[in-house]
Simulated assay, not measured.
Amino acid sequence: MLFMVLVVIFAVIGLDVCIKSSYAYGIDFATFVTLRVVHALVCAFVLFAEYQMLYKTRLKTEMAESEQLLHDERRQYHLSKETIESINVKCHDIRHQIRHMADGLGTVVVDPLIFDDIAREVRVYDSTVSTGNDALDVILSEKSLMCERRGISLSCMADGSSVAFMQPTDIYSLFGNALENAIEAVSAVPNSEKRRISLVLRADMGMVSLHVENYFVGKLEFVDGLPKSSKGDDFNHGFGVRSMERTAQRYGGTLVASARDNLFLLDVVMPLPESTGAK
C-alpha cells in the first residue's frame, strides 16, 4: 500500500503538475492532448493495480481463513472420534452394571421402571451410527446426540461406502457443515413437527449424491447460488458453505442449494472414481 501511495503521488499527481506546467510554458495543443491521454492511461493503470492488490489481499485472507477452518475441522474430527468411542465404552459398562444391579437386588424392593428409565437414557448416548464409513459414523453420531439434546428429529439413510474415496477430514467437513447449518436453522423453528432434518446419501449410475433438507423460519437470501449468512457478517461468516462447495469441487462435483415454502434443500453430487464405480 505504501508503494501504491508513492505511485499515486509521483505518477498521477506529479505527472498532472508537469503537464499543466508544460502547457503554461507554451507547449503546443497536440502535445498537451497527448500528455493528457497518457496521464489518463496512467491513472487507469494505477486504479487497476490497486484493485488487483486489494483483490489478492482479500483472496489471501479468505485462503488463510479456509486453511484455519480446515485445520480446526481436522482437529475436531479426531477429538469427536475419541469422544464418541469413549462415550460408547462408558455406556457399555454402565448398561452391564445396571443389569447386574437389577439381578442382584435380592429382596430389596426397587421399581424396575427406574432401571428401564436409566437404561433408556443411556441408550441415547449409546446409539452408534453404522454406515460403513468410520468418519461418517463419527459425524452422524455426534450430530445425532446434538439433535437429541435440542429435541430435533434426525432421519438418516446413508451408504457410507459410497464416499470411501473421500478423505476422512473432507467427509467430516462436508457432512459436519451441512448438519450444523441444518441444526442451527431447525433450532429456531417453533413448530415441533417441523423440527426435523432429513439426510440421504446414496450412489447410483456412477454418481454419489447427498441430499439434506430442513425447515427454517424467516427469509433466506442467496448470493451466487449460495445462502447468505444469517449472522450479519458475510465476510467473517459463511465459510462453512463455501468450504462445502470447495470440497465438492475438489472431487469434481457440484453443490446446489435452494429453498421453497420454508424448506431448505441442499444437494451435492460427485462422480464416483472409476475403480469405485466398477465395484
Rank of each mutant, 00 (worst) to 15 (best):
G14M: 00
D224Y: 12
F29G: 03
F235V: 14
E121N: 07
V12I: 10
V110R: 11
V208R: 05
S153I: 13
I13W: 08
C156G: 04
S80F: 05
V189D: 02
I19H: 00
S22Y: 04
I114Q: 06
M146P: 00
S155H: 13
H78N: 11
M166A: 10
Q167T: 07
L59M: 11
Y55M: 13
L6W: 09
N177T: 14
V241K: 08
A40T: 14
A182Y: 12
I152A: 03
M4A: 10
I183C: 10
G218Y: 09
M146I: 15
L47G: 03
R196F: 15
C91V: 13
L47V: 15
V33M: 11
M53I: 14
V268N: 02
L272M: 08
R242K: 11
C91Q: 01
T128V: 14
I152T: 02
A278D: 04
A185I: 08
H100R: 09
S22D: 03
T61D: 15
C91R: 00
I94F: 12
V109C: 05
A102Q: 15
K56G: 00
T247S: 08
V186T: 12
S173Q: 08
F175G: 04
D159Y: 00
R120A: 15
S275A: 13
L210R: 00
E221Y: 14
M101G: 01
I84S: 05
V223L: 09
Y23C: 05
H237Y: 06
L220C: 09
C156T: 15
E121V: 10
K231E: 10
T247L: 13
P273C: 04
Q167S: 14
